[in-house]
Design a protein around this nucleic acid. Structure first.
Length: 321
DNA sequence: TCGGCTAGCACATTTGAAAGGG
DNA sequence: ACCCTTTCAAATGTGCTAGCCG
């Protein structure tokens, strides 16, 4: 299998500039992404599939309002390395795993008119990442501890059967991330907890915060002790197993001890040499791709859906009359 | 022994159905 | 009958942790 080129053509080429004037994509939550990126973004991947956080929130402009477009998200490896978090930073420690068949996530609104895409914020929050190579749910399959770059493709629907023509690829370097099955960098964990509403329970004032969890643990031990005492047993024999060293430290309030000096972070996400670039020359090689939304035969499915939509819109127009 | 992965947990949010009122 | 709001439960999304595995 041929490796796809990742780096798009030079930004300043006349062709690119002309094209940039036509179709533009903006990463709406770029500030949040940059916050994560400055620490080395980590994305959890699980067997069942995990959403990305932050998600990709995009604004599109320059489309023809009446043309129909399909939006795709795919995620490609940035390099051929496997990474390990050591000494407070991410370091390449060996060769990457064999590359998996590419999967692209089709935005559920696809195909939709340019007017549709341009009238709202486009979100890919339904896309899920998995490390299950046998996944049948259509999630995007990635290797753990590898560095990836999400890309968004805008394809004119009438061109969908001849991939490579009339498509625009957008890459935002700040959305690069390293896949993990458990967070490595506590700063990333804190950022996620503080900015993801679903993780509110883990915030300082939440019921799942360290403080509350430790208190619960304490109460558990006390209750168990009481129970054992009431049952008149030899409590020493039935005391719970000692907790992990980390929990012990937390319980003792040692978590607040000064942290070791922050070593130099090896992964500098801002180093990427391209930004918000149209990779027009780099055709989306969908011949190699499995399309993740479950529509393996995208042509048939899209045609069907387009026809359905046209019928619906026709019906709506008739009602309006 | 160690690093990485997984299942189960508690908690929060989201979603959709049902109920009630105007 | 319809619309809107409220309530509730189920589903889903989170990070944490103990234990397993290679």
């Amino acid at each position: 299998m041929t490796q796809r080129m990742l780096v798009p053509p030079p930004v300043h080429s006349e062709a690119a500039k002309l094209h940039r004037d036509e179709v533009k994509m903006e990463l709406e939550n770029s500030a949040l992404w940059k916050q994560f990126s400055s620490q080395g973004t980590e994305m959890i991947i699980t067997k069942k599939g995990r959403r990305m956080f932050p998600g990709l929130r995009l604004k599109l402009s320059g489309l023809n309002p009446s043309f129909r477009y399909i939006l795709l998200l795919d995620i490609v490896p940035v390099d051929n390395s496997r990474y390990r978090f050591q000494g407070g930073g991410w370091q390449a420690v060996g060769a990457a795993e064999a590359r998996l068949p590419d999967r692209a996530f089709i935005h559920p609104d696809s195909p939709a008119t340019g007017a549709h895409w341009q009238s709202r914020t486009i979100s890919f929050h339904y896309a899920k990442l998995t490390n299950n190579t046998l996944d049948t749910q259509g999630h995007i399959i990635l290797h753990s501890l590898h560095r990836y770059q999400p890309r968004v493709h805008v394809i004119e629907a009438r061109d969908m059967l001849r991939w490579g023509g009339g498509q625009h690829t957008f890459v935002f370097p700040e959305t690069q991330f390293i896949t993990v099955t458990a967070y490595q960098n506590s700063k990333i964990t804190d950022l996620k907890i503080n900015s993801n509403p679903f993780a509110k329970g883990f915030r300082e004032d939440g019921m799942n915060s360290k403080r509350q969890r430790d208190a619960r643990q304490k109460r558990k031990v006390v209750n168990l002790k009481d129970t054992l005492e009431n049952a008149n047993c030899d409590s020493a024999e039935f005391l719970p197993e000692p907790t992990s060293p980390r929990t012990d430290l937390q319980a003792l309030g040692l978590a607040s001890l000064p942290q070791p000096p922050e070593p130099r972070c090896v992964f500098k996400a801002g180093e990427a040499s391209y930004q918000d670039v149209l990779a027009h020359d780099q055709s989306l090689d969908l011949g190699q791709s499995f399309l993740a939304s479950g529509m393996s035969d995208i042509g048939i499915a899209m045609n069907h859906r387009m026809q359905e939509r046209q019928e619906n819109e026709e019906a709506e127009r008739m009602i309006e009359r």
